[in-house]
Every structure is written in C-alpha cells, then in structure tokens.
Design a protein around this nucleic acid. Structure first.
Lengths: 250, 250
DNA sequence: TCGTGTTTTAGTCATCATGACTCTTACGGT
DNA sequence: ACCGTAAGAGTCATGATGACTAAAACACGA
C-alpha cells in the first residue's frame, strides 16, 4: 500500500511566471520512391547546424492548433494540402536540443503518394528525398535530434501499417497488388508471398476496390495485373498482420 | 506528379523572436481498483477551473527532459518513483486551452499496481480515484481539455495492452490468472474465457512465471488459484490478442 | 510464329491459433 | 457429507496463415 501525496504546489501556478519555450512542429514526410522508403529532408542554410540535413518544420503560431501547424508546414513544404496520413507521434524537449534556447518540438508523420521533383528554396541550401536506410545506418547525419525523430517515425509507420492499413497512402490512385505489396515489404523489411498477400488483401472486404482495368506488364512481361483503388481505411486491425520473426525465408 | 516547393523561410529563424509558450506535462495515472479501471484526479484549488477535476501535472523545467519531468511529477504526486509503464502519448496545444496564456502540454500515461490512500495537499482541494467510465460518459467533468487527454490515454492503454502486454503492471507482485484476466476485461471491456485465457498466457513462454504457491480462494470457495509473478515485458506482440467484434457472446 | 521466361492469380495442403465447450479438481460453507 | 463455486485440463471445430503447385496471360527473341 503506497501512501499517495498530492503535490498541490504545481496545480495552480501562474503560467506566465515560468520559463518560456519555443514550440515547433517537425514533419517527417515519408514516401516510396524506386521501391524504397524515403524521407524528405532539407539542408539547413543557417547556423546552427548549417549545411546539415534536417526535417522540415517551423514554429507553431498561438492562433493555430498543433495539427493545423503541421498541416500548414506540410503544405508550405510540399504544396500538398492533404496527406492520407498526418499523425502526431511524439514530442521532444531535451535540454540543449536547440543550442539557442529552449525548444520543444512536436513531431508529425506524413505519408505522401508522390513527392515529385524537390526544389530547394532561397534559404534552404538543398532539399531532397533520402532513403531511410541511409538515415538509420548513419550514412546521412541529421541536425538537432532529428535522427531520433526520424527513427521514431519509422517505428510509428511500421505499427500504423498494421493497425490502420495505411499502405494505400503510399501508392497512386490506382495500383496493382504488387505495388501495394512492395510498400509492406519496404517498410517492414520482409518478403511476402504474392499469392498469400492477394488472398489476405482481397479477403478484407472493402479495403481495396477492383477496377475493371488492368495494368500494362513491365518490360519483363508477365500477366497483366488487376488495378485496384483504395477503399476505406481501418480504424483497428488492418488487412494483413506483420509476419513474426520465426518464419522461414526461402 | 506534384511540384515540391521548400519554404525555406522557416528553416533558419531565430527561436527567441517567436511567441513564448509555457510547456507542461500531464500524467494520466491509471490503476485498477475494485475490478474497475480508475484514473487519479485532483480537484483544482485555484482559478481557472477552480473546483473542477484535472489530471495532475506541472511545468517542465528547462534543465530536464520531458520524460524526466513526467517522472518527477509522478513521484511528487504519488510517491511512487517508478511506474511499470510511463509513456508519452500525445501533445496538446489548442489555442485557448489555458485561458491565461499559450500552454502546450505533453501527456504521459502511467500505470500503477496500487495507488493506495489518496490525500489532498494544501493547494489542491481534493484528490481521488475516479472510475474512467465516469469520465468517458461525462459524469465527471474535467478542467481544460483534460477529458480529451484522459480519453486518448484510455485508447493508448488499450493498444499498449495488446502490443506490449503491460497487464502485469496493474496487478501485484504475485497474482492469479483471474486477477490478470480482470485487467484485460476491464480495459478492453470484453468477457474472456478463463480456460482459453490461461492457455494463451501460459503458452507465451516467460511472460508469467509460476510460483509454487497458491492463493486462498475467496468467500465463494473454489479451487485455489496458482500464483504467478510477472516475467519479461513484450517489445512487440503480447500474449493475447484483443478479440474482434464479430465474435459471439454466449 | 513459336517457344521461353516472367508475372499474376487460382488453388491445395498442413499447421496453428482461437472460440466454445465439457469435465475434473479442490476448495468454502452449511 | 453434500453442494456450490472457481481453477484448470482437455476436446472439437473453425479459420487464418505459410508453403507450395499450377494455370493464365503477357513480352521478347529466335
């Protein structure tokens, strides 16, 4: 039995008497490109961390919500006004994470079908898509604590893929099951059997909607794949589960 | 193909030129009591929202991380220095959520085995455990946007129960499987078959460790239940899955 | 035009997890 | 001693899944 003592001193303080923080939002923009999971990064044009890569972000305005700030940043950075998935996944406030002052940032995950050509503005030295593997293995170093933020974003999207079935957010308006399967394989870093994948996906009624059309086969030939379009998103429990680690690889 | 424009203007601003926010942490402390899921609330002793119930919380200090702030608040409020689960689950920064100034709060979920007697301090008018159902159905109204925060915490613990198997954090050092099952049933609001529950739990090797001892049956009699103690926590995939909605109830 | 290789898609089979259920064991209470 | 109750072992049917085979439908080169 633990005695509980309520430290009331902290309940009624005047907030204006407390040390101020700057509050920012950072958006980890993920997209598929050439079969790989990529993250959109900008190269900083100013100190601190000048010349280093960072996730796009900016300051929250007092008149907007955190979600609105993230949505605004996403639009400003990419021109896209609505991602299929824009989810808050963490807040970061370690002392010294910004050398200038106390900054707490709220991180969002955005999933885009296609980012297209990335152009750098006047203040950012550069902007481009970077394979997430390059970030995870340290090949590309990020400013501030953005590597940790990106790492957490990957973890989040892996879970999100299973519980909400957000995979269709990565592909085009119409897509083949092979394209969709590539999303799962890239994000989960697994190999999925095409036949079993189709069985699971089609079994979930309403998640993908068959169109009458078929895709043209690639240069290697093959039977033309059926084209689908995205149906409803899941609230809980996606169409397929993440394979456990004990499965064999052929 | 979407043209991407990087709005560089936001990359290099001086943080000190931006409107200051107060940053707080709020801790949603959950515990089982009398077969119900309860949340620890304090009654505010000062304006705004004087006399209303709120989750315990306080201001983040510039010298500590967000996690440390949450841990400190938890200790100050309950005297417990380490919960089995202390997880950040959301940040809240809607304009006007605190009428005094701009406040962004980072919310944490804490799970305790036993809170014990709750005593109110000098500044808080009261402090007590409230069944979460009373919060969810609006029977108990909360200050600020704390109802939303508590609601999100419930959602989080429901998921956490499945993916990390955190159920043992709610029970004592040793426990019967009936007690553990009651945790799942209360949080998921489902009925689980005792025999099947045991089969699933024991099948996961190392999650619960049998002691040699047995519990005394309750007043109603019955076979004495085996006593277990908690084994390792899961990183991904708990011992049992949340039942789907299409299952039959008898 | 005719194979050959490739990809999609249908189908089979064994295995395993799970819900529903029955029955035995071991206690408290009368 | 008897009955009610709860724990826990065991059975059965079902459904999901991994592994695999085979047919269908295309591109391409010979």
């Amino acid at each position: 039995m633990t005695k509980t003592r309520v430290d009331d001193a902290l309940v009624g303080y005047d907030p204006s008497q407390f040390p101020p923080f700057a509050v920012t939002v950072d958006v980890v923009i993920l997209t598929m490109s050439e079969g790989e999971l990529n993250v959109l990064l900008v190269r900083r044009g100013q100190a601190p961390f000048e010349g280093e890569w960072a996730t796009p972000g900016g300051f929250k305005r007092p008149t907007e919500t955190l979600d609105e700030a993230a949505k605004r940043e996403l639009t400003e950075e990419t021109g896209v006004d609505a991602a299929r998935l824009l989810t808050q996944f963490g807040a970061y406030g370690d002392p010294g994470r910004d050398p200038r002052m106390n900054v707490v940032t709220v991180a969002y995950l955005a999933v885009l079908r296609e980012v297209g050509a990335v152009v750098a503005g006047s203040d950012a030295a550069d902007a481009r898509l970077v394979p997430v593997t390059d970030v995870l293995n340290g090949k590309v170093e990020l400013a501030f604590d953005h590597e940790r933020i990106v790492r957490d974003a990957i973890t989040r999207v892996r879970v999100e893929l299973e519980v909400s079935g957000v995979a269709t957010a990565f592909v085009g308006v119409t897509f083949t099951l092979a394209e969709l399967r590539a999303v799962y394989e890239a994000i989960w870093d697994v190999q999925l059997d095409g036949a079993n994948f189709r069985r699971s996906i089609v079994a979930e009624n309403g998640w993908v909607i068959p169109t009458r059309r078929r895709a043209r086969p690639g240069a290697a030939g093959g039977k033309p794949a059926e084209l689908f379009r995205a149906g409803k998103l899941w609230k809980y429990g996606g169409p397929i589960r993440r394979p456990q680690l004990n499965q064999k690889r052929k």
